[in-house]
Amino acid sequence: MSQLLQIENLHAEVAGKEILKGLNLAVNAGEVHAIMGPNGAGKSTLSKVLAGAEDYVVTSGAIRYRGNDIAALPAEQRAAQGIFMGFQYPVEIPGVSNMIFLKAAVNAQRKERGEPELAANDFLAWVRHRVKQMKMDPAMLSRGVNQGFSGGEKKRNEILQMLVLEPKLMVLDETDSGLDIDALRIVSDGINAMRSPERATILVTHYQRLLDYVQPDFVHVLAAGRIVRSGGPELARELEEKGYGWLQAA
C-alpha cells in the first residue's frame, strides 16, 4: 500500500493561538481513518490545515501528500491534486447555481492538471448521475450553492460535490452532524461509494454513529492538539462507552 498522507510533528496556530501541538498521522491509500476527540481538541483545525485555509498557519512540522510537502501550496492547487474537504458548515453563495459551481470546480481542476475541459453534455450526464446517487432533487442544481438549504441538505451537497470531483484524499469534517437517520445513510453510502484502493478518507467526528455505516480501519483520538491514542474500530466503541475523560487523565 502506498502512503498518501504523512503528517509529522505538525504545529499550527490560528490568530496567534497554537492549536495543533506536534501531531503525527500516516494515511495509506485504501484506508479510512476516523479522528475523534473532545471539543476544542483541534479536529476542525486539522481539516482546515489540510485543505489549505490561509488563516491557519503551520509553524513547524511537515504535511506530505504523495511524498511532497504541501504546506505552501494554495488551496485550489491542493484541490486539483485530489484533496477534498467536506465542510462542517458549508458556505452559501447566493445567485451562483450548484451547476455553475460544480462546472467551474471540475474545469478549474482539470485545467490545473493539464486536462481538457469536459464537454457540456458529458458533464451534465455525470452530475445527474451523482445527484441521483445522493437521492437529491435535480432541481437543486439550478438553485444557489447551499442557498436556503437545510443543515442536512448542505451536508448532502458536500458529498455530492465530492462524488462529482472524485478526489483522492477526502477529509470530512463532522459531515454526520445535523443529519437525520435517512440522510446519514445516504451520506454514508456516498462515502462508501468512494472507497477504493487508490483513495483514502479521514472522518472527523464526535460520534460512533457514523462509524456504524462507514467502517474505519483506524480510529485516533485527538486531544489538546495531538493524537493521544490510536487503535482499531473497537476504540470508537470504547470511547462511546467511557467518553474522553479517561484518556485526558491518562
Binding site: P74, E76, V91, A104, V106, A108, E112
Partner: peptide, 11 residues
C-alpha cells in the same frame, strides 16, 4: 466564501 471556492479548485 473564497476559501470554499478555492477548496473546490476554483482560483
Amino acid at each position: 466564501q473564497l476559501f470554499y471556492c478555492r477548496s473546490r479548485g476554483i482560483g
